[in-house]
Design a binder for these strands. Structure first.
Lengths: 190, 190
DNA sequence: ACGATTTTATCAAAATTTTATCGAATCTTT
DNA sequence: AAAGATTCGATAAAATTTTGATAAAATCGT
C-alpha cells in the first residue's frame, strides 16, 4: 500500500504531489489517479526553473502547480482556490508578532482581541504587514494604498498612521509602526 | 498606445491577461512583456477546457493562470499569492568588510547587528561604500551627498563623519573611515 | 626636532526639517 | 439626513542637520 493506491481508493479533498517522490515520479502518480476517474483537485510541486515539469504535470491532469520554495500561506491560497470552501478553510493570514490580519475575512486581531479598522486603515495595515521589516516611503505607500497619486502637501498618511497606532496599540504594548525619519514607515515586532 | 505598450513601459504590481484580446492574442502580449525584461507577475485567464492555452501561457512567461468562470475571491487569492512574494530584482547591497548596506531596504548592519543611521548619515555612508578604497575629497562628497554645493567654511561633513564613525565602530573594532589629510576621506577594511 | 601653520576631531547649542496630533471640513455610505 | 470615514489645515513635538567655538592632530619650513 502506497500513496498512489491510497489516492486512487480514498476520497481526499485535495492531493498535493511532489515531482520527486520515493520510487515513483509524481507525474506518473498524477496520471494513475486520473486513470481511475478521480476528479480530486491535484496541486503539483515543482522546483523553480523546471517549467517543463509544470507543463507536463498540467497535461497529465494536475489542476495547479506551485513553485518551490513557497510559503504555507501561498499553498493554502491555492488549496482554497481549488476547493472553494469559503467558510471552512481559512484565508490568507498575515502575522507580525501577536498582530494578525486575515485578508480574506477582513479582520484584525491583536493577542486574540478583535480590532475594528476602517477600509483605508485596513489596507494601509495590510500593505505594511505584507512588507514587514522594510521601510516604505510615503510615495510607495501612497501609490499602493491610494490608487491615484496623492499630493505630497497633505498629511493624509500621517493621519491614518496615527489612527492605526491608536487602535493597534491596545494595552500598553510597544509601538509596532515605526517611523524612519526622512524615509518612511515600517512595521515590525521590535 | 495600447495595453501591451502600457505594460511594457509602466511598473505594475500584477498584470492580468485574457487569452482573447481585441486585436492581439494574450499570449503574444505576455511574450512581449517578458521580452523587455519585466519581471512583473502575470496571471493568465483561460476558458475551461483549453488546457493547451494554459500550457502555452506558462511557457511564454505567465506566472499563474485562472480558468473562467472564476469567483472574484479566487482571483484575489491568486493576486495576493503572487504579489506577496517580492518579485523585485534583488536590491543593491554594498559590503565593505562586515559592514553591509542595503540600499533598497534602507538598512545597515555590522557583523549582523542592525545600525540606525539618519538620512544624511546613510547617504554619506552609501557614497563612501560605493567608492570604497578611493579617497573622496570634501568637494566631491559635498557635490554628491548634498545636492547643491555647500560653503567650504562649514564643517558639516566632519560633523557627519564623526557621527558615522561613532555609530559604525561598535565594539572596539578598527576604524573604517580613514582621513587622508589634505585630500579627503576613504572607507576600507584595513 | 621644533614651533608655526594648516587640517581634522569633538561637542553642544541653534536652526531647520520632519513627524505627531487634533479638530474641523469634506466626502461616502446608509 | 445621519453616521461614519476620509481629508485638510494648523500647531505642537520630535528628530535631524547645521553652525560655531575649541581641542587635537598632522604637516611644513627651518
Amino acid at each position: 500500500i502506497d500513496g498512489s493506491y491510497m489516492a486512487r481508493t480514498t476520497d481526499y479533498d485535495v492531493i498535493i504531489l511532489d515531482h520527486s517522490l520515493p520510487g515513483k515520479n509524481g507525474v506518473v502518480v498524477c496520471e494513475e489517479i486520473r486513470a481511475v476517474g478521480k476528479a480530486v483537485p491535484i496541486i503539483f510541486l515543482t522546483v523553480i526553473g523546471e517549467l517543463h515539469h509544470k507543463v507536463d504535470a498540467l497535461e497529465r491532469g494536475a489542476d495547479d502547480y506551485l513553485t518551490k520554495p513557497f510559503s504555507f500561506e501561498e499553498l493554502r491560497a491555492r488549496v482554497r482556490a481549488l476547493t472553494r470552501r469559503p467558510h471552512k478553510i481559512e484565508g490568507i493570514i498575515l502575522r507580525v508578532g501577536d498582530l494578525v490580519l486575515d485578508a480574506e475575512k477582513q479582520t484584525v486581531t491583536r493577542g486574540g482581541i478583535g480590532i475594528y479598522l476602517t477600509r483605508k486603515e485596513f489596507n494601509l495595515l495590510e500593505y505594511l504587514m505584507r512588507n514587514h521589516g522594510v521601510v516604505l516611503s510615503r510615495g510607495v505607500i501612497m501609490e499602493h494604498v491610494w490608487n491615484a497619486e496623492g499630493d505630497p502637501f497633505s498629511n493624509t498618511i500621517e493621519s491614518h498612521i496615527l489612527n492605526l497606532r491608536k487602535k493597534i496599540n491596545i494595552g500598553r504594548r510597544k509601538e509596532m509602526i515605526h517611523n524612519v525619519p526622512g524615509r518612511g514607515y515600517m512595521i515590525d515586532v521590535a
